[in-house]
Design a protein around this nucleic acid. Structure first.
Lengths: 262, 262
DNA sequence: GAGTGGTCTAGACCACTGT
DNA sequence: CAGTGGTCTAGACCACTCC
């Protein structure tokens, strides 16, 4: 027994995939669709909700239902880590010129709004484990948001942790008003004699929580990519851990693995 | 004005996040919830659908609604590429011992069911571009599925493309019955004198299409990770392109970037 | 058979958008 | 203002699971 709302959804999905309805096109109103398919309005709404959850349509209150346009993604490339490392030893002027977000998005620094918030915090079991320090060790927790000035939502939600004693030799590193720091975290670490050896990134994807959907301004039918970045110094010590939440519909992660020659 | 179904969803979500309801717990029936919140059954259902889409609960027809247990993820590590490369020059017995999926999941070869399907196909504009060959060049399209014998759904959907003329020197590479090939694609390429130099991987995430949800047996409230892998040989030529669809709720990708020393 | 979630109806009212 | 999607109701019937 084919379900009525699936029949409707399948039909509309087909008309979108086939190109019969193009991105930006308006679908008939719910009432019209109900008439056309000889079903009640709530049944039509069930079908539309399905398509909205799949990310195929946008339902805009008071306006209508539209075929969604794909958003062009920002690329986050793992070559950025080497780029940041190279930049960390360059003069101030060069470091101040462009940051990592400009690198990813191709936007200019003038177009970006930066926000940072520092707080000290005692290491929980999990974080203490990762850093290899006793539970309760004081960490510096740094929250970063960067957004395009013309948009409300940031590109990502970033929470970064450092061990306070590891960086306290330079008091400027404990001061959030010094952000955005020219040269970024790798330069900050450089000022206290830390050189990175490698960066490990782990990620998964899932639907956003309501809080994430709100913070990143995500429509229904999008996913978030959760990225956990761990940075190791040349002594094999974990020196930074950060948690990054990225909007799945506009983020592309790119990784290159070089192989040893035979 | 707080919406009724959101009030209910918020309340239930809170009781799950706080740990008051634990994974595996059964929620009250829809009718009970309707009574408790003094709302109609469809309104309660709206709230439950929201939580189901967030991946917090499982609604099982005829049984009830349960707090979802997180699935333990399979890890896909970029070190696998070097591991596969090293393995490609080892003797047959060593290559046959374990494959890439065993490497990722920790399962034994006996527990895995492998499926492969080959087909020849003319290169479309996009693929011709990537390979740097004229449109219409004959490609070998290979579809792979590997699943745990105790489960219905495969770990991933893989479609891999090779340029036919590049590998035709070894006719065995055109024969799907030779799969699973001990040593995998890197060994296959090795038999025709191709050595990989680097692998580039790009990822995005989005909700599954109905077809993907069906093929990977994905419950509502999960995402898929889309991976496009491009392999380059030591001459800088693109020798393989593959498209991989991974279930977001049980896949963790891990990527290590080594940095040059100062 | 009892209890559960899944679907559907017909109609009401509200909130938002553009003119 | 008219037209759109968003929410909600009260109740019906169906399909599934377990006993």
């Amino acid at each position: 027994m084919p379900k009525a709302y699936e029949v409707i959804a399948d039909d509309l999905r087909g008309s979108i995939r086939s190109g019969e309805r193009e991105p930006g096109d308006r679908l008939p109103s719910e009432a019209d669709l109900a008439l056309r398919y000889r079903r009640s309005v709530p049944t039509v709404q069930n079908a539309l909700r399905l398509l909205s959850d799949e990310g195929l349509i946008d339902r805009r209150h008071g306006l209508g239902t539209f075929v969604r346009r794909p958003r062009t993604p920002a690329v986050r490339d793992n070559l950025r880590h080497q780029w940041e490392k190279d930049r960390a030893r360059r003069p101030l002027a060069a470091r101040a010129e462009t940051g990592a977000t400009e690198h990813d998005t191709g936007l200019r620094a003038d177009d970006l709004v930066f926000h940072a918030e520092y707080r000290e915090e005692e290491a929980s079991g999990e974080l203490a484990d990762v850093f290899g320090v006793p539970e309760g060790t004081v960490l510096l927790r740094r929250v970063f948001r960067t957004r395009y000035s013309a948009e409300r939502a940031p590109f990502s939600l970033v929470t970064s942790y450092l061990v306070r004693d590891m960086i306290a030799a330079n008091p400027g590193l404990l001061d959030e008003t010094k952000e955005p720091w020219p040269g970024g975290t790798q330069h900050q670490l450089h000022t206290v004699g830390i050189e990175l050896d490698r960066v490990e990134e782990r990620f998964t994807a899932r639907p956003p929580t309501p809080e994430e959907a709100e913070a990143l301004d995500l429509p229904p039918g999008t996913s978030v990519i959760l990225l956990r970045k761990t940075s190791y110094d040349t002594g094999g010590r974990v020196v930074e851990v950060s948690f990054v939440t990225l909007p799945g519909d506009r983020t592309e992660l790119r990784f290159t693995t070089r192989l040893e020659r035979w």
